[in-house]
């Protein structure tokens, strides 16, 4: 069941399968927030924006086709989907694109403008957006940006004006225990801290082990200063609705941990 996280913004989540391999590594290293025996999941999130027009940001993975189609129908409640925006053409983020467009043939596909290989992703006919581009849904205004921390080159971040929401896609994700689906970060019983974030980023942004720590931390400060987000909605973590700068400080610690401690695994 989707959760409305701000008037007209709905969070749709694929909780993902249990990851015993991650649980084992957490036990082995004594991760303080993990309770042995609990399931571990790495979620995929999609966000539906409903103004006078509607936009879905990302599609969940092919393992959740039924979920995304059903949840879309539930929230749209007979309305049309006007836009389907892809943060980047990765399977877990874009794997249901065709199925959604089949169900909503009037939706306009929106994709990052970066790069020259859109044909290799079936995105040559998509409406391409990049830094400086905006989309007014009527009551919701979206802005598109270069992704600062990413995996695929053809990526974008998005912000939404009325909520002050930053959608940093693969950045600021973390593993969840069972029962933690669709919770705001401030609703967790176990701590949402740099250790949880490091577990995720040491897998997804494994390249942080090769970075200049000070330079990367400076970029985090710059992201905060540039967007001044009031909410953060990652594709793989809990939505943050309060005290955003504190989480950015955690992310600076994460860079240092991955750079010095190395990769934590794979996703």
């Amino acid at each position: 069941m989707p959760r409305e996280i701000h008037p007209g913004i709905h969070w749709i989540q694929e909780f993902g399968p249990d990851r015993p391999g991650i649980a084992k590594s957490l036990v082995d290293r004594g991760a303080h927030w993990y309770r042995p025996g609990r399931e571990i999941h790495v979620p995929q999130n999609a966000f539906l924006f409903t103004g006078e027009r509607t936009l879905l940001f990302d599609t969940l993975s092919p393992a959740a086709t039924d979920r995304i189609l059903a949840d879309l129908e539930r929230v749209l409640d007979g309305r049309a989907l006007d836009y389907l925006a892809l943060s980047h053409p990765d399977v877990p983020h874009a794997g249901n694109t065709f199925r959604i467009l089949e169900r909503h043939p009037g939706a306009k596909l929106v994709a990052p403008s970066f790069g020259r290989t859109h044909e290799l992703y079936h995105l040559e006919d998509a409406h391409k957006v990049g830094p400086g581009d905006s989309l007014d849904l009527g009551g919701k205004r979206l802005h598109f940006h270069d992704a600062a921390f990413l995996d695929a080159a053809m990526s974008m971040w998005m912000t939404e004006e009325t909520s002050g929401m930053l959608l940093p896609v693969d950045w600021m994700g973390l593993p969840l225990m069972d029962g933690e689906g669709l919770l705001f970060a401030d609703e967790f019983r176990s701590p949402v801290d740099e250790d949880r974030y490091a577990e995720f980023h040491g897998r997804v942004m494994f390249w942080m082990r090769y970075v200049d720590v000070a330079r990367t931390q400076k970029e985090i400060d710059l992201v905060l200063e540039t967007y001044r987000p009031r909410m953060v909605a990652s594709a793989h973590g809990p939505v943050i609705r309060a005290d955003v700068p504190r989480y950015f400080e955690m992310m600076k610690e994460v860079v240092e941990r991955v750079a010095t401690g190395g990769r934590t695994g794979v996703l």
Binding site: P17, R19, G21, S61, V91, R203, G265, V266
Partner: peptide, 19 residues
């Protein structure tokens, strides 16, 4: 395939390799 979770990558039938 080396994915930690092949289903999420759309490869439910893959034999998993480990990095």
């Amino acid at each position: 395939a080396s994915s930690g979770e092949p289903e999420i990558q759309g490869l439910p039938y893959a034999r998993r390799s480990r990095i």
